[in-house]
Nucleic acid binder design. Structure first.
Lengths: 110, 110
DNA sequence: ACGTTAATTAGCGAATCAGTTAATTTTAGA
DNA sequence: TCTAAAATTAACTGATTCGCTAATTAACGT
């Protein structure tokens, strides 16, 4: 299904992330509808869709001259699974962080 | 904290993803220990660490001549939150997918 | 067969990225 | 103070990315 870094790479672009979010919110959409709302040429969007497809994040269905795109739930699940694999780390760490901040309210950064 | 695409971008590189995973597994580590296990020069790794830092994924603590790195749990949480925001989509979709496959076992791809 | 619509691929330039070696900075120790 | 250790920044190169316009492919409707 293409690996995790590949998926993260696909989602590292604002245009592509919003396409994925829109497809999740609205369901299957033709390429034309996706281009219409983006301030970008059709070829540029077509390449973004290709990147998302190659990362396994979206699925393309052909219907006549139209290409209908939708998000692959398995791909989203793969990302969710990764975060869950490490939930123990960030969950516990956040608890400790909160406890610490409750005692000494500093404001730590980079 | 730097936005989501920024974090996805930082995690889109295999070297950086494994650094993050190692830090979650082993806890805080000095730059030297991180370089030691990567087949890469120190400057190259230093830049990867900078990318992770700028994405808000890791925290740097100075101790003498050493730079100690650790994963920021809030950053991991931000990613987990994003997946959870859309859980309803992928969870429900996967259920439908399974139900569908149970009836017609095809094997659909890109 | 022809023109139209939907979308993709081809080709180009500017910008960014990931690696290298060399040089610099900062702290610790003799 | 002089040297060594830890790490970063500087400067350079090759590869990739992202946008554009132009050209191509594929399916419909007449």
């Amino acid at each position: 299904m293409a690996n995790l870094t590949h998926k993260f790479s696909a989602l590292s672009d604002a245009t592509r992330l919003s396409v994925v979010e829109r497809l999740m919110a609205e369901g299957e959409l033709p390429a034309g509808a996706i281009v219409a709302q983006a301030d970008m040429s059709a070829p540029a969007m077509s390449r973004h869709l290709k990147v998302l497809r190659e990362a396994g994040l979206i699925h393309q269905r052909v219907e006549g001259t139209k290409r209908l795109y939708s998000v692959r739930p398995e791909a989203m699940r793969a990302i969710a699974d990764w975060t869950m694999d490490h939930k123990q780390f960030w969950d516990a760490s956040l608890d400790r962080l909160e406890a610490h901040l409750a005692l000494s309210p500093e404001g730590d950064d980079t």
